[in-house]
Design a protein around this nucleic acid. Structure first.
Lengths: 215, 215
DNA sequence: TCCGTTTTTATACAAGTGTATAATTTCGAA
DNA sequence: TTCGAAATTATACACTTGTATAAAAACGGA
């Protein structure tokens, strides 16, 4: 009998890379970076370990790609919340804060993955750059939203104060996000976004409302 | 010739354990958890690797002990800032916030060590307990300081609001601490404690002043 | 001075790690 | 239908890992 069933399928490079990245992220989420070995990754992605090296010249390359992907997802999830033309500046800011402090952004796996990468940031220069970029991107976005909100309310602030408001707001969000992911049982549902809106409101001197829009 | 110089010295159990813990922490700070291998640890502590197993039944035991030590140091450093009988409540709170956002609490190594451990928290139950305890200890301390400050200013708040103020203040501090450690170049000197005091002040509705006391 | 406890070293081992290389298999183009 | 380039597998290798065990050395009490 001739071999009827193919022993494997050839996939596009894009597809395979994505499979490997997903496998890597899920393993890191479950068992930390330690669990993301080439063998475990290839097994979860249903390929042999040799394939990893075919698409990523080294394991660190795969890790870096996974980091970039993860961060990209997080940024996208939060940014999407403000993409409604109908929203006023204050509603935009509120939606942004609320989205950053609700699932799926707030999630134990996300925090673990993020913390795992933080260690590598020191050794790997690429990751250092990515880390900085992600941070500044988020903070600049926040600063823009705060600026628009204050302008609409006819409140004047110096550049320095605006910068500090953004740093502080970023910090509250980061802190709450972190604690919500690391200690899921420590907070009641909706408590995180509520506290986040109150705090950012207090920092910029306005009352932020919860927008019922986001699912 | 008889052997005049001893080949090694016997130390107390306490001393040796501490040496091993310090070696572990410094290695994690430099190269992440990956760098903290039994061989690297024993080499840095100037002993042979067999000694680790003599004092810690397993490597995870040593890691857990190092975690406990690190967290204890951080808690101690911040708590010490309020230990002056002469301080008023608002000065106590201010000193606490400022100390949490200044060196040596804010430090790249501290953050890396902390993040490294965060991964292990999920797997190891002991570490999970320690993590929760450290968090609640810090937050409760903060809540107590906020309560005393508000009482002195004759401001009444509900239990719920007090709790939320503590959570939010904790989050700003954590966020700023994290960013200060992870991105040391992103902030000017003294910017972190200043922003921290402003933010916590905004959250609890009072102006916090920088106490010139702590060096 | 000598001895016994226990600290410390020395060495070995099995399992797991990332990487390299060659042999297969697939699948579209000729 | 054939053929060749590229994807995928298969296998091997050198190295590091944590752990186990026995031998050696130190040092206080007799």
């Amino acid at each position: 009998m001739s071999d009827t069933s193919p022993k494997f399928r050839r996939e596009t490079a894009e597809q395979r890379k994505d499979d490997l990245i997903q496998a890597t992220l899920s393993l890191i989420a479950e068992h930390g970076v330690r669990g993301a070995t080439v063998r475990a990754i290839s097994k979860r992605a249903d390929v042999t370990q040799g394939l990893i090296r075919h698409y990523f010249s080294t394991k660190e390359d795969l890790i870096a790609a996974a980091y970039e992907h993860h961060m990209g997802c997080m940024t996208e999830l939060t940014s999407a919340s403000t993409d409604f033309a109908s929203l006023s500046p204050i509603e935009r800011l509120s939606a942004f804060v609320a989205a950053s402090l609700s699932p799926p952004v707030v999630d134990p796996s996300s925090v673990v993955v993020w913390a795992s990468f933080l260690n590598k940031v020191r050794e790997d220069e690429r990751m250092q750059k990515m880390h900085e970029q992600t941070y500044y991107e988020f903070r600049d976005r926040l600063e823009g939203l705060i600026k628009a909100t204050l302008e609409e309310a006819d409140i004047l602030v110096s550049t320095k104060d605006l910068r500090r408001m953004a740093i502080a707001s970023n910090a509250v969000i980061d802190g709450l996000w972190l604690e919500g992911g690391a200690l899921p049982t420590a907070f009641e549902p909706n408590e995180l976004p509520e506290i986040g809106l109150e705090s950012v409101g207090a920092i910029i001197g306005l009352k932020l409302k919860i927008t019922a829009g986001s699912s």
